[in-house]
Amino acid sequence: MAYCTACGAENKQSAKFCGKCGAPVDGTVPAAPHQTSAKGMSGSGSGPEVELWEGKPAGISDRLKGLIGLNTTTYTITSQRIMVKTGLIGKDLEEVELLRVNDFSVAQSIPDRLLGIGTLTVFSDDPSSPQLLFRKIRKVQSVKDVLRGAVRNEKIANNISYREQI
């Protein structure tokens, strides 16, 4: 994979320009991942908040909305939280701290599998968002793996462990 030296986004090896920021991609030096601003960062001891993944719904209707600029839902996974932004004029933002995530599941119907998309459900103990849905996202299994790794790392950094009771 080639990485953009300006924003750190992954691009295809043959890409000449970054698909995220448009900067030229030389593919030789991986850049550090994009760090989010200090505003809104949790007080955990796990260091600066780093954006790990960002995406949008990619179903057929969502792709058509994207052509005319109406696909306004954005999913973001950082090293400390999960965010779902929605809305064209008014914006809604749902956030769940990774420390509150308990489990995840992936659902793919047959048409979804043909399109290479799926729905990721995040289960948490957050009272305002016990279930957070990433609907119709591309490469749903790899996104789940990114989220799983981020949750594990955040819990390890904060010395949180679970013991099952029998």
Rank of each mutant, 00 (worst) to 15 (best):
R100E: 05
L88W: 01
T73P: 11
A2T: 14
P57L: 07
T86M: 14
P48N: 10
I156L: 13
V151E: 04
P130E: 01
Y162W: 05
S109E: 10
T74G: 07
A6P: 04
G66Y: 05
L147P: 00
R100Y: 03
S37T: 12
A6L: 14
G19I: 03
G116I: 09
E49C: 00
D145Q: 10
F17N: 10
K91R: 12
R135P: 00
N102Y: 13
M1V: 15
P111K: 01
K12R: 15
I68V: 15
D125N: 12
I60C: 06
R138T: 09
K12M: 13
L52P: 01
P111E: 02
P57C: 07
A31P: 02
G55K: 11
D62Q: 08
S109M: 08
K91W: 02
G8E: 08
D92E: 12
F134S: 00
K144V: 10
G149A: 15
N159Q: 15
G87A: 02
E97A: 12
L67C: 11
N153L: 05
N159H: 15
K144C: 05
M41I: 06
I68F: 15
D62I: 04
T119K: 01
F134G: 00
G43K: 12
R152P: 00
K20R: 10
K155G: 09
P30E: 12
G45H: 10
S128P: 00
G118H: 02
N11S: 11
I137R: 07
T5K: 15
L99F: 02
K136I: 04
K12S: 15
D92L: 07
D126H: 09
S124A: 14
E51V: 05
T28G: 06
G55D: 05
V146L: 07
L115Q: 08
G55L: 05
D62K: 05
E97G: 08
T74L: 12
F134M: 00
G69L: 11
T86Q: 14
T121Q: 09
F134R: 02
R148L: 03
L52F: 05
